[in-house]
């Protein structure tokens, strides 16, 4: 009578993948469940098997190495905030985490869950993509590595095959003279982002922009990188970045967006907002690099 599902609790990542392979499309990985529970209750997702990942302690860790920091897919948003060195290595992830949902949700929701949910508004995506994050994906047969940017293929669709699991997100240490910023706007203090933007800039020894990343959230079927806007910045000396150029970068990024109208706001507003947020994210990055 009552709608429910079968419950499985693997002890190792590989075992989790095998369970997923065995039970197919109506088996789901359950991490924090803060999105999945709502979807299931609403009937938006069918679940026959819930594969509870709580036992996979190794995927909960955040490891800071010399070359890279590896964030386990099951690390909670709160654990990003609590980590001893993540905040100093990647302050943008702290900025993002502080504005992620509510304190209670942050204690439960995981970075991997946020990414695998695959919604365009996922807050973790733009900053991590701008950091050139890579994802390590496990399957019963082995593993593969993918750029996070190519992980998203459509609304609520990721590159994961049915038997694959996102295990880790790896972020390489930034080159010297790099700054990453994140801007987000919502209807009120706690809300899904109407739009968001992350910007990473790296300058060379002559203070010229050598690398730029501009990534927007909630304005396209997937988190959206605007290489057109990035190109406008590369090669420009910091001192030559004018208000006019910033506006041009914002406009270029906005022109790449394909937002929708929904109960939260209109497509026109989202498009406009994405330009504003990109401009601000870039301006803030430029300001900090100039300090």
């Amino acid at each position: 009578m009552t709608r429910s599902f079968q419950y499985l609790r693997p002890d190792f990542p590989r075992e989790a993948c095998e369970m997923k392979a065995k039970h197919g499309g109506k088996a789901v990985f359950w991490a924090g469940g803060t999105d999945l529970m709502l979807q299931w209750r609403r009937g938006a997702v069918d679940i026959d098997y819930c594969i509870d990942l709580s036992g996979l302690d190794e995927l909960r860790q955040i490891r800071s190495g010399e070359d890279a920091t590896v964030i386990g897919a099951l690390a909670t948003i709160a654990s990003l905030q609590a980590h001893e060195s993540l905040g100093s290595d990647f302050p943008v992830l702290l900025d993002m985490a502080e504005r992620f949902a509510t304190p209670q949700i942050r204690n439960v929701a995981t970075v991997g869950g946020n990414l695998c949910h695959g919604v365009p508004s996922a807050d973790c995506a733009p900053p991590l993509i701008s950091l050139d994050a890579e994802v390590r994906i496990l399957s019963p047969e082995g593993e593969r590595t993918l750029s996070l940017e190519s992980f998203f293929v459509g609304p609520k669709q990721t590159a994961l095959a049915d038997d694959e699991m996102l295990a880790e997100i790896s972020v390489r240490r930034l080159p010297p003279r790099s700054v990453c910023t994140f801007e987000r706007m919502a209807r009120s203090y706690v809300d899904i982002a109407l739009a968001s933007a992350a910007c990473r800039l790296t300058i060379d020894e002559e203070s010229r922009i050598s690398e730029a990343r501009i990534v927007m959230g909630a304005v396209a079927p997937v988190p959206l990188r605007s290489t057109g806007a990035e190109e406008l910045l590369v090669g420009i000396p910091l001192v030559d970045i004018t208000e006019g150029l910033l506006a041009e970068v914002g406009a270029r990024a906005a022109s790449d967006t394909r937002p929708i109208s929904d109960v939260r706001t209109t497509a026109a507003y989202r498009k406009h907002l994405s330009g504003v947020l990109v401009k601000r994210a870039v301006a803030e990055a430029v300001r900090r690099l100039g300090e």
Binding site: M185, R187, L194, T265, T266, A268, Y269, K271, H272, L273
Partner: peptide, 13 residues
């Protein structure tokens, strides 16, 4: 007075 109403009134969207 939602953000989109503000911007519409200012002629920005």
């Amino acid at each position: 007075m939602t953000p989109e109403r503000v911007l519409e009134a200012l002629g920005k969207i």
